[in-house]
Amino acid sequence: MSKLTRLLKSTFQHFRRNLWLSMVTILIMGFASVSAHVLIGTRVLAASAAQLLTQKVDITVYLTPTSNTAAAEGVATKIKTIPGVASATVESAEEVYAAFQQRYAQESDTVKALKAINVNPFGPVVRVRGNAISDYPTIYAGLSDPAFAPEGVIQRTSFDNNADLLNRFSSMERTIRWSVEGVLAFFLLLSLVVVYNTIRMAIFSQRDEIGIMKLVGASNWFIRLPFLLEAILYSVIAIVVSFGVWMALLKWADPFIVQLMTTSEASILGYYQQNFLVLVTIQVAALALASMASAGLAVGRYLKV
């Protein structure tokens, strides 16, 4: 126990003696950690946006006005057998008529014209949703097979194609992600260089003490370990600070993000609250391992025991 206490005491002593250098190291590691937070946030937003857009993509099969709901149900049942179809829902001709009236309620001329013909010009429709965006081309092609509807039942098929928008969004998200990953890699690399240099400086500034430790028979690990622990200490402090700043920022910004995206799935704060321990553990472990490796290189090179 006294050994561990002395090791920790020695570690904090190193930290205190190189306070400014330690602060700079923590700051840069903090930037690396914040970059990781931004990356995670981007992924959460991208996932929820993709989900939203996916929900807006569908294929509508318009049946002729003479077709009844039962015929539409038959078509829907057949469509469900096409690979990749998640659902095929029927809207009766009356429902389509009501929906049209509601949509054009502000345009009195259109509603008047519809009433003037005194007959429902719409047939029932079947709305088809795929399991994934990539399924839609196959489904759309499958619908042209006459096996799905008797001659004259399907009037036309409309592919409300938000896929282009989704692709554009994915491409934008990829660009942002790569940029953030680049920034993260830069700060991570910079952190490792700074840790290396900080440990090197610490070794030089304590060379007298290290010399005496060797002289009086301190074990090699007792001399080396505080420098490695110092690197872990930097990582832990950097992560704690970065999480503190990031969570405070999210607490402020999250309601606006959720409102903008119109879905609670876009709540980055919620994601962090659900996965807090995992995220902290992964970040601490990754940063501590990387900085320990860097410190280990410096110790191996400059601390001869």
Binding site: S2, D208, I212, M213, L215, G217, A218, F222
Partner: peptide, 28 residues
């Protein structure tokens, strides 16, 4: 081992300088 330049730690007292040799070797 004793040297000409003493090799004492200036920020430690006499007691601490001597104790240091035992501390780093894990003595209780």
């Amino acid at each position: 081992v004793v040297f000409q330049d003493f090799k004492l730690l200036p920020k430690k007292t006499v007691f601490e300088n001597v104790a240091f040799a035992l501390e780093v070797c894990g003595v209780a």
